[in-house]
Every structure is written in C-alpha cells, then in structure tokens.
Nucleic acid binder design. Sequence first.
DNA 1: ATATTTAAAGATAGTTTTGTCTTTTATTTT
DNA 2: AAAATAAAAGACAAAACTATCTTTAAATAT
Lengths: 149, 149
Amino acid sequence: MFTKTTEYALRAVIYIAGKGSEEKKLSIQEIAHAINAPQHFTAKILQQLSAENKVISSVRGPNGGFFMTMKTKKKPIMEILKLLGEDVVLDKCVLGLNECSGKRPCPLHVQYIQIRPQLREMFKSTKIIDLTNDIELGKAFIRSVSKKK
Amino acid sequence: MFTKTTEYALRAVIYIAGKGSEEKKLSIQEIAHAINAPQHFTAKILQQLSAENKVISSVRGPNGGFFMTMKTKKKPIMEILKLLGEDVVLDKCVLGLNECSGKRPCPLHVQYIQIRPQLREMFKSTKIIDLTNDIELGKAFIRSVSKKK
DNA sequence: ATATTTAAAGATAGTTTTGTCTTTTATTTT
DNA sequence: AAAATAAAAGACAAAACTATCTTTAAATAT
C-alpha cells in the first residue's frame, strides 16, 4: 500500500513515541534496529520528519537523538503520511486515472468509495500514541521477523 | 495502491471486455490509445495476461489482435491481479511487516482488518464484465484526461 | 509464393526507489 | 580548548519500475 519509506517512517515514529521522550532520546542506531530497517536509510527519513519539528525532534551530540513531545505523540498517523507526501495514496483512483470522481468516475469508483473513506478515517482518527501501548504490553510488534536463509 | 503495470492491465482488460470479442479483435494500438497508456509497455503487460489464455487471448497477423471470451469476461478482476502477482498487495501489512497476523499483529492490524477484507471482497466479487456497461453508457471512463502543458 | 499485418520477443534506456558509505556539523563532556 | 558523540548532509550504487525502439515470428490476404 505504501512505499518502504512510509512503512519505515510509521514504524520508527511509533517506536519513538513509545520508548522515547525529551528526557530519553533515542539514537538512530537503536531505532533502526528496533524496527528492523536499514540504518542510514531510516536516518534520511527521520530527517524529513524532524524538519521543522513537525512530528519528531532531534538533538545532535552526546546524549542526543530523536524524541517526541506529548503534543506530537497525540497527532494522527495521517500527519506522518502528509509530511512524506504519501497521503495522496488515500485519494488515488484504483485504476490510476488522474481524474476520478463522482463527476467523472472510473468503472470501479462506485465500489471503491464505499471503502476509501474508511481507510482515510483510519489514518485520521488513529493517533500515534494509540499504537504504542500494545507494543509495550508485548501484544503488538513493530519489527519484521528476520528471514532465515 | 497498485503499480502502473497493474493499473494499465485493469484498464486494458476492461476495455477489451467491453469493446472486443472473438469476432472483433482489438489491436494493441487501439487499446493503448483507449486507455491512455504507453503502447509497447501495454503490449508487454497484455503478453503476460494472454499467457495460457488465462484472461485474454490473442491472435497474430491481419485481423488479429486481443479479445476475450464470454467465459473470461465473467471472471473476477482479482484474476488480473493474480496473474501479475499483485494480489499480495491485498494481504500486506500496512507497516510492511512480513509477518502480521492475529497471532503476531502490528499495532495497526486490529484497525486494518476491519477494512482489508472489504478490499479483497471488492476484487473478488466484481467481475470484469460488470465494469464494461457504464463505459459504453458514457457513465464511466477508462482514460486519463490528458494533461495540458 | 510473396507481401502485409499484427503480436511476440529482445535490447536498451530513463526514472524512481531503496540502500550504503563517507564527510561534515553541532553539541556535550573532559 | 580538545576530544568524543550523534545527527545532518552528500555522494554514490544497486534494484525495481516504467518506457521506448527494434527485430522476429506467426497468420492472413493478395
């Protein structure tokens, strides 16, 4: 559904929200390992997300790292998509028409508009912090199981 | 949601189902134009779909082209996804975990399983031929509006 | 038989996405 | 002030996706 960039972003932010705070900043190394993502690639993504401190914040140097304030933890996960320009995925036509609306629908439009708003709503109403609890309880996971060779 | 390949494939098949038949085969040129897709790229895709005549059929030479039988027109659009290996998109975890299930869920799993089955059902219960009628009536469209420069 | 038509197949190239590695900058600690 | 730490930034490379062009093979029509 989303790009790897967005998948890593969602996982990383959820991890930071759960484990980090202004007092306990998390290194990119810890984060990348915790979500089982390539470290430097994840770093680039977090840079984007920390631009203007919209979702996450960062501090350089010893005891530096990434963290979130309670205010940003309460934002909907849609915010993450928006910062990456990936919220458009939730508006796209299934058949890829650049205009697809009630006025000029694709043949699948009428079926899809039954579902698409639910998807949008999921990302709008689910807050970042809502996703952290089950992880701490060991009831949800944010790390791919490593593939055996 | 899907790759360009899949988008073109869905559009092309719907077009062929609506306009073509064993008696009236359609050229790749006509199809590509009708769905506003690059001709040779579309050709490759149709080759995949016509392998073993699973969804579409083709005949070379004069008066040749692509067509579908009534039997294949009645197949669910899921068949198209399956032939391209894109049906897995409908099973994927939103966060990209390679294992994400009730047993080992990602933190978004519980929300997403409210929606994902509806998506699957849409592709399973919608038949190719179901999507052709509105196009012929001018009530649905299968061609991107060409962008002005 | 030959020429024509049309899809199949192959080669290649551009673009985007994903990933790695190195250098730089900011911050803190000693 | 100097050394150490950690993110920021830049360069680069591999892979996947999208796209174009050319050649080949099959079928039909002349």
